[in-house]
Computed example of a mutant assay.
Amino acid sequence: MKKNLLGFNILVLIALIVSSCSENSSDEFKDDVAPSEMEQDTKLNDSDNEMEQDSVANNLEDLDNDAIILDTRLPADIDSTYVLTFEDHFNQLPGTLPNADKWQSKLPWGPSVTINNERQYYTDVLNGDNNAPNPFDFDGNSNLIITAGLNSPAQVEATGLDYYSGVLTGAQSTPYRDGYIEAKIWYEPEVAGFWGAFWLLHRYYDSPQDTGANGKRRTEIDWEFVRGPGGEFLGGPYDTDRIPVAYHYDDGQWSISGGGFKGPNGSPGLSVQCDGTEITNVVGLGPVKQPSGEDLAGNWHRYGVWKTDNFVKWYLDGELVASVCDPAIVSQIEMYPIINIAIGGNFPGPPNPEDYPTSMLVDYISLWEPPVK
């Protein structure tokens, strides 16, 4: 009611002003106008003396509406001609499911294949899977909630795994070859065995079309939010004041990560970052930390990847933090985003059941690509 009354009062006030102005001659009106405004009005009417002032104002308004507005989320070094081609702000109502036109709730190898000795079952709710709890919800404030928790004894029997979790992949909706993708994410601190991730996977799983870059197949680009004592093969402990980033190809046989550039059986590799820093068998990428050293968990941050045929660049809150500038190994096929929570396994190590359920929130996932020529 207050809004309606306010709108009515504004309309009455406008009517009174218009009525008052109509009683004065145009000369009397111009006497009250500053010289600079009179000069501007004269210039606007020079092109057409019969053009009305209202028409000029409308034309200027149209020009303002057509002006290019740069997205402040794009890092400063990214080509300003890139255009938004995909976005999900997760503004569904609580109790609903993710948008099936944008996402799949399964990995390409399905829930029956468990990699890295992980302990979660990804409930494929978008295909009617009810073997484990639904891991997805929305908070009504435009945030996706992904929850990982303990399975009941019946669910353990049905799935063969003691935890449930969720994964969303854009395999059908967002494959791209050249572009910048960003997710705004929040996750809990102090959760042992937590392995959340925002990552990109090659489009053609188990397909002859996966030609990769110069024969490099099965490429993967990672942001990994890890907490735990450390797994059997990958060291540790891991804390959430730092975030590993990685680039893998040939199904992980060749990997560039914090430990350096390593091939099969730890064989050395050599590459370079975009600032000329060498990536060797002992000098790798990351982990990414905040300058202040504070924990990244428990706070909202923007995690971005800019990928072209020539390089991969990682961005934290719009700032470049790592890169691989090597066309010989960078993926030159389409890749697509994945957001998920893994639990336990070779990387973070065993989870603590008392820390679960735990959740990761996603505000948006957005993709910008070069305009179509």
Results as ranks from 00 to 15, higher is better:
Ser173Ile: 05
Leu150Val: 13
Leu97Lys: 03
Leu126Tyr: 07
Asp309Arg: 12
Asn91Ser: 15
Phe138Tyr: 04
Glu369His: 07
Ala158Gln: 12
Glu354Asn: 15
Ser271Ala: 10
Ser152Gly: 01
Met51Asp: 07
Met335Arg: 09
Pro208Ala: 13
Glu354Cys: 10
Leu63Phe: 13
Pro291Asp: 14
Gly344His: 02
Lys102Ile: 04
Ile243Met: 11
Glu87Asn: 09
Val330Thr: 07
Met360Ala: 00
Val191Arg: 07
Glu220Leu: 08
Pro94Thr: 00
Gly140Lys: 02
Asp124Ala: 06
Asn45Trp: 11
Leu5Gln: 14
Cys325Asp: 11
Asn130Ser: 12
Glu319Lys: 08
Lys184Cys: 12
Leu285Tyr: 05
Ser55Arg: 09
Ala192His: 07
Thr169Ala: 06
Tyr336Asp: 08
Lys106Asn: 09
Asp101Gly: 10
Leu296Met: 15
Phe90Gln: 02
Ala154Pro: 02
Gln155Trp: 03
Thr114Val: 15
Lys102Asp: 02
Gly170Gln: 06
Gly263Ser: 00
Tyr356Gln: 07
Gln92Arg: 14
Lys373Asp: 13
His89Phe: 12
Gly230Met: 00
Glu37His: 11
Val330Gly: 02
Ile243Gln: 07
Tyr303Ser: 05
Ser22Lys: 13
Pro111Trp: 02
Ile185Gln: 05
Val288His: 01
Glu190Ile: 11
Asn127Gly: 04
Ala132Tyr: 04
Leu11Phe: 13
Glu319Leu: 06
Asp77Thr: 05
Gly228Arg: 03
Glu369Lys: 12
Leu74Asn: 01
Arg119Pro: 01
His301Ile: 11
Leu107Cys: 02
Glu37Phe: 12
Asn99Met: 02
Asp62Cys: 10
Ser292Thr: 15
Val83Arg: 10
Ser267Val: 05
Asp71Gly: 03
Gln155Pro: 01
Thr174Phe: 06
Asp66Lys: 14
Glu334Gln: 13
Cys21Lys: 13
Ile279Lys: 02
Gly276Thr: 08
Ile243Arg: 06
Gly259Tyr: 08
Val56Glu: 14
Leu97Tyr: 01
Pro229Val: 10
Glu61Pro: 03
Leu168Thr: 00
Lys3His: 11
Phe29Pro: 05
Gln92Asp: 12
Ala15Trp: 09
Asp48Ala: 09
Ala342Arg: 03
Val245Gly: 03
Glu87Val: 14
Asp222Gln: 05
Pro351Gln: 10
Asp239Trp: 14
Gly110Ala: 01
Ala67Val: 12
Asp162Arg: 15
Thr308Arg: 11
Trp254Gly: 04
His301Thr: 14
Val83Asp: 00
Gly266Leu: 09
Leu201Glu: 08
Gly236Glu: 00
Arg302Ser: 15
Thr219Trp: 06
